[in-house]
Structures are given as C-alpha cells and as structure tokens.
Deep mutational scan, measured.
Amino acid sequence: MTYRVRIENADGEVVTIEISADELREKGLTLEELLPPNARIVEVEEVEP
C-alpha cells in the first residue's frame, strides 16, 4: 500500500509526498515522525501501488 501525503510546512507551503507502507515499516517510523519541525499533515490518501 502507498500513501499520498499532503504536508504543510512552517512557511505555509503545501507539498505532496508518496511513501509506501513497506518503507515506513523498514524505517520503523510513523508518518508523523517523518515530518520536519513545525510541519503538519493536511491530508493522507491511500493509493494503489
């Protein structure tokens, strides 16, 4: 499974990243732990691999 994640950074700019569930598991991280300081998740969407 892959996630498309929209993130708002500290400057108010919204960027989109895609990350797979396998990648998260391998790194032992959650989506929140990948965020840079002062950023927030705006939207998470599951996409087909």
Rank of each mutant, 00 (worst) to 15 (best):
E46H: 09
E32Y: 13
T30D: 04
D22Q: 13
K27F: 08
A10I: 10
V47N: 04
R6L: 11
D11Y: 10
G28C: 06
T2I: 15
G12A: 02
R4K: 07
R4H: 05
V15H: 10
T16L: 10
L24S: 01
Y3T: 01
I41K: 03
R40Q: 06
T2H: 14
N38Y: 14
P36S: 05
M1Y: 12
V15I: 13
R4T: 02
E32T: 09
R6S: 09
I41C: 04
N9T: 15
L31R: 01
E43N: 11
T2N: 11
E8S: 07
P49N: 13
I41A: 02
E32N: 09
P36Y: 03
K27I: 05
A39D: 02
K27S: 12
V15M: 13
E23N: 05
R40V: 11
T2M: 15
E33F: 06
L34N: 02
N9V: 12
E33Y: 05
L24I: 07
E48Q: 14
G28F: 04
V42D: 02
N38G: 15
L24Y: 03
R4G: 00
E23M: 13
E45L: 14
R25C: 08
E33W: 07
E26I: 13
D11V: 08
L24R: 01
L29M: 12
E13H: 11
E45F: 12
S20W: 05
E43I: 07
I7Q: 00
R6A: 05
N38A: 05
V47H: 06
K27R: 11
E18H: 12
M1H: 08
E43Q: 12
G28L: 04
E33P: 00
M1G: 06
V44E: 01
I17L: 12
T30F: 04
D11L: 10
E32S: 09
T2E: 03
E23A: 08
V44L: 07
T16K: 03
M1A: 06
E33S: 10
L24N: 01
I17D: 00
D11R: 09
V5S: 00
V44W: 10
S20C: 04
L29R: 07
E26Y: 11
N9D: 08
N9H: 13
G12E: 02
R25L: 11
S20N: 08
V14R: 07
L31I: 11
R40Y: 09
V15P: 00
T16D: 06
R4P: 00
Y3G: 00
E33K: 07
T16Y: 10
A10G: 09
P36C: 03
A39M: 09
V14W: 07
